[in-house]
């Protein structure tokens, strides 16, 4: 069995998540080759074959061109699986490669199980086992689901060149918004999720944060709706935090939220849904209506 791993590179740097691809390949017990649109000055610690195209000429985001490069390498390597990280790069490019090859894509794998690949569904509450119908498939792995593995060594480079410009023009990056709150340093964070119901209820959650001497955090929908400022958002597109205590109020526990807070020392979740996926990582799940429970807790803590 052979996997072609598609490494990732952003703003001139090799992304660490690339090493999770090796973790996946090990679990599969598979031979590997790798492809990256990157730079020779930033090579992964990997002794296998690396198909390398230069990001300076091919662009970091040019899916038409990157697809072509991958299809070339697929011809040469004849891999069983072509594997990406399920990231803004991977979920954008993988379906293009799968469609060109007319093979199945299995998205956001969290595990390898007998009979197929394990993926989450229904907002991470449930799981599916998915099996590609053909021998070859395109896979994307969930960020953080497979161990980071550094194979070590120096790659055997196979340089790829391509000219074709593609249908998209990449204009450039826009930096992340400045944060006026650094949640990364907070020892206690109390976060509001959509389960709080409405903007008027934010002060109730903020009051618990204050009573505990902590900061207010928030899930993305609460930020998108304008209930809480973006600088308080926890998750893949917000901040990554690791406080001593994290209290999730009315937050379901989607992977993108968990990615930002699962390293917290102690996690308390308040949710009326006993099956909410936040329960899988919470040290304590309080099954209750958040708007009844939180004020009662605040009153006792403040006393």
């Amino acid at each position: 069995m052979k996997t072609l791993l598609i490494g990732e590179y952003r703003e001139g740097k090799l992304l660490d998540s690339t090493y999770e691809l090796f973790g996946f390949a090990s679990q599969m017990g598979s031979e590997t080759a790798m492809l990256m649109v990157g730079s020779e000055s930033q090579l992964p610690a990997y002794g296998g074959t690396l198909y390398l195209a230069d990001a300076a000429t091919c662009g970091e985001y040019n899916p038409d061109l990157h697809k072509k490069l991958i299809l070339d390498a697929v011809q040469k390597e004849n891999p069983d699986y072509i594997v990406f990280v399920h990231s803004s790069y991977g979920w954008d490019l993988a379906p293009r490669v799968a469609a060109s090859l007319k093979v199945a894509q299995v998205s956001e794998l969290i595990g390898v199980v007998p009979g197929g690949f394990e993926v989450g569904c229904c907002n991470a509450k449930m799981r599916r086992t998915v099996k590609p119908n053909g021998a070859r498939a395109v896979l994307t792995i969930q960020a953080g689901a497979f161990p980071v593995e550094q194979p070590g060594g120096t790659p055997q480079l196979q340089k790829l060149a391509a000219s074709e410009s593609g249908t998209l023009e990449f204009v450039g990056y826009e930096p992340a918004e400045k944060k006026d709150v650094d949640l990364g340093k907070a020892e206690i964070i109390v976060s509001a999720g959509r389960g709080i119901g409405k903007k008027d209820n934010v002060p109730v959650i903020a009051a618990l944060a204050k009573a505990l001497g902590g900061e207010l955090g928030a899930s993305r929908p609460v930020v998108d709706a304008g209930w809480v400022e973006h600088s308080h958002q926890v998750g893949t597109t917000g901040q990554t935090v690791s406080p001593k205590l994290y209290v999730a109020c009315g937050i379901s526990g989607a992977i993108q939220h968990l990615a930002g807070m699962k390293k917290s020392d102690f996690i308390v979740a308040i949710n009326k849904d006993k099956d909410a996926p936040i329960g899988e990582i919470a040290d304590v799940l309080v099954v209750a209506d958040v708007m009844q429970f939180v004020p009662a807790l605040t009153a006792k803590v403040a006393r």
Partner: peptide
């Protein structure tokens, strides 16, 4: 404007 990880955005024309 595409959303990338960590709050960075990518601007694309087509």
């Amino acid at each position: 404007k595409r959303e990338l990880e960590g709050g960075i955005k990518g601007i694309v024309k087509m």
